[in-house]
Nucleic acid binder design. Structure first.
Lengths: 202, 202
DNA sequence: TAGTAAACTTACTGAAGAGTAAGATGAGAA
DNA sequence: TTCTCATCTTACTCTTCAGTAAGTTTACTA
């Protein structure tokens, strides 16, 4: 479909240059059409960007949730979801960059859309963590804040690790996930079991 | 000094709007002068941005290293450095945003400068982790890749956690650091001690 | 083969904004 | 008071680019 082709092109250009520096003519050319077609289908540059964000956000959440749902038990769900998340971020860098590397103030509508998109990704991760913790924690219970904290840490780590992955192409997304789970999940389990780290005295 | 005032203004505007959407007139007005003054002092918009990146990068590394050097033993260094890093990112959000939330392709010189700045921050963290691991790991030794992996994860987590901190103003940067150390450092110690997490079988 | 609607393009308009030329202001010297 | 140097501004130029008006091609119908 024509609209999807335009969004494919837009994704590339927006992720490479950012919203403001992206030029509609370049997007049109990449989609193999002329500029007025872009305006016919998407209305404006802003509309184009927002459509792009919506689609990539939906794709991301879908990939993520689908994998988690196939994961079985809570710990398996967390693993499967996180692995899917990594795979998605690694294989669709453009999506991730468009959603997460835009300057904060490009206008009301855009800011709103980006906030919503980021929140929906974060909500998925938080959900997975929450059930994972409930499963692994035994009698200890962590609050919603803690799940949210870990979700932020994980998502941020995943973002930054895409750079690391670029320099380690031999490492699969699954292997990267396993590395991260080794550190964070083992840490969480032990913290839940009562092994508390305290800052050394000055 | 006049040049520093211009850079202060530029930092605000660049971090709010991104390089491309930032308008030199706005920077000038914020600095209380007119546009030609900006060009007199910094030469061009690109030069202004690069000077801005250089200064913030240097400040960041300085805050970071200074705190670490006052930290004593390796684990204390890691704690002190990381806490300083968090404090800096939380209190100087603008610096962090200018260095880390720019679209990738804004021109050769800018890309080069940003890469260098990011690398120097990452190198500090990696160094701290390496000596921390060597200290805590006993007979087990992790490779340079592993320290780099953990450094990426930590820096990414810190970035993302600045959002979390905004929604939890009651939590100090030190407390946030302690939370993160609880998960990641406890995890690392246990992993180093041989507690390996494996993905559940499908 | 003429008619016509859909899909598309060329070539423009208008605004925004980087960069600058030319001159204004003001402080200090003679 | 008049000269001169440094500091600073007003008022432009010129380019880039979002958005559009007017027309052209294509494909299908009758």
């Amino acid at each position: 479909m024509r609209e999807q082709e335009i969004l494919d092109a837009a994704l590339q250009v927006f992720s490479k240059r950012g919203y403001r520096a992206a030029v509609v003519d370049e997007i049109a050319e990449l989609a193999g059409i002329s500029k007025p077609m872009v305006y016919l289908y998407l209305g404006s540059k802003e509309g184009l960007f927002i459509a792009c964000v919506r689609r990539e956000s939906a794709r991301m959440v879908a990939a993520f949730r689908e994998a988690a749902d196939a994961g079985g038990a809570p710990e398996g769900r967390l693993w499967a979801g996180l692995a899917a998340f990594f795979r998605h971020v690694a294989e669709h860098r453009d999506s991730w960059v468009v959603l997460h590397r835009q300057a904060p103030e490009q206008g009301e509508a855009i800011a709103h859309e980006l906030t919503a998109a980021r929140r929906s990704v974060m909500a998925e991760v938080t959900g997975l963590i929450s059930t994972g913790i409930a499963d692994a924690g035994g009698q200890v219970r962590l609050g919603a804040d803690d799940a949210d904290f870990v979700a932020h840490a994980l998502v941020g780590a995943a973002d930054s690790l895409t750079d690391w992955m670029e320099r380690h192409p031999e490492e699969s997304p699954e292997a990267t996930t396993a590395r991260l789970m080794n550190v964070m999940w083992v840490g969480m389990r032990n913290v839940l079991a009562g092994e508390i780290w305290v800052p050394p005295a000055d």
